[in-house]
Design a protein around this nucleic acid. Sequence first.
DNA 1: CCTACCGATCGGTAGG
DNA 2: CCTACCGATCGGTAGG
Lengths: 233, 233
Amino acid sequence: MNRPSHRLKKKAPAPSVRRALERPTDGHSRPRRNDTEQAIIRAATRLFREKGYNGTSIADLATAVKVRNASLYYYISSKQELLLRVLEDGMRGFLARLEEIGATHLSSREKLRLALENHLDFIFQRPDAVAVFLRERRFLESPYLDRYRRNVDRYDSLFTGILEQGIRARQFPRVNAKVTRLAILGMINWLTEWYRPRGGLSQAQITHILLDLVLNRLLATGRARALPGPWSA
Amino acid sequence: MNRPSHRLKKKAPAPSVRRALERPTDGHSRPRRNDTEQAIIRAATRLFREKGYNGTSIADLATAVKVRNASLYYYISSKQELLLRVLEDGMRGFLARLEEIGATHLSSREKLRLALENHLDFIFQRPDAVAVFLRERRFLESPYLDRYRRNVDRYDSLFTGILEQGIRARQFPRVNAKVTRLAILGMINWLTEWYRPRGGLSQAQITHILLDLVLNRLLATGRARALPGPWSA
DNA sequence: CCTACCGATCGGTAGG
DNA sequence: CCTACCGATCGGTAGG
């Protein structure tokens, strides 16, 4: 494959000029700093999911955002810091909602239902962010890791709290809390590996089936067994 | 940090010589080709799990195996081929056993129990291989990917077959087979993310709890509910 | 946000 | 299984 000739001749307009030419002249033209920052984080999220953190180069990201490699360092200080920001951006809303649920005075069963719905909604709405969280956070190193670990711990402890409270209150059967928590998270998180928007099942169907599996089967108390839903066969 | 001086002086013995000196002079000294090949594949499995495929360099691997970078290419033809061999090495025994189980004339419930035990045994015995299979196989490219895909498909279809047969035979409740299969695999595969040999639970305990969750709760028919085991609370 | 540039490392080859 | 070597790419910096 031939190199593009402007690599050699250095005659073609630089990206910023090209963008200005392509941009509609309707007034709200120049992207603000925050817009570009957000664009970088979202593009990185998508690329990190697709190619992995270590498989994504700064050049890949610059191409996706349509700036020069070096320009990215106007917005981020390192690739590690970018990973941190991708993770925090992805986690923020999710964790806030889980905190709310934990703070209500609903029954453990209702809390768990809401927590699982929150979890599933999030996977459907930001699948790339969740996949990066699950697969790539292990590549975060000190000092970024330390700052981030609290988020993960908080998430674990909120979830565990709901489950253990429910077991103590006899709203759930006397299962092993630790393994059951991890089993439930495994069921749910595994969605990021197989869910595709054009698959045979809608988001509502999948949510219904999984909630039924967890609440009415895995954690059935022997009393309240729901009827099978329309999609359960 | 200072470079080791032999980098500059080129006086220290080369690795092969050093190994010969360190080797006990008891007769069975020189490793055979197959031994070295196997050592490479096992070291790669461990490194790919620890650092990811893209995070592991040929130099990392050469260091682990104690040969020069270039020497690895006497045994493998490319990093991609190495990944393929790591995956095949990890999958072989597992798949063979699953085939055996599928070919028996046991009930679906018994087949599923054996399939899950096989799956769990494998995670406990070869955690690195399973983790690499789950996380890194997506980095396998054509033409290696094509050759490998059949293994994955076979594994899926064997597992699905057992579950669907059991649902048709009314040995399992009328759950959605696809989602339930993925939920069970998620529960089990998630083990690779959290199991640590020095954790609070033994392999036997975890196996017992997870089998109880799947067979007696998730797939309870309403008739046979096992008593809670000694570790279930 | 750009041009210009860099040392380190990457996977891999030639030839023995 | 080694020495010697390579072109490409890596994440990142200087200076504007």
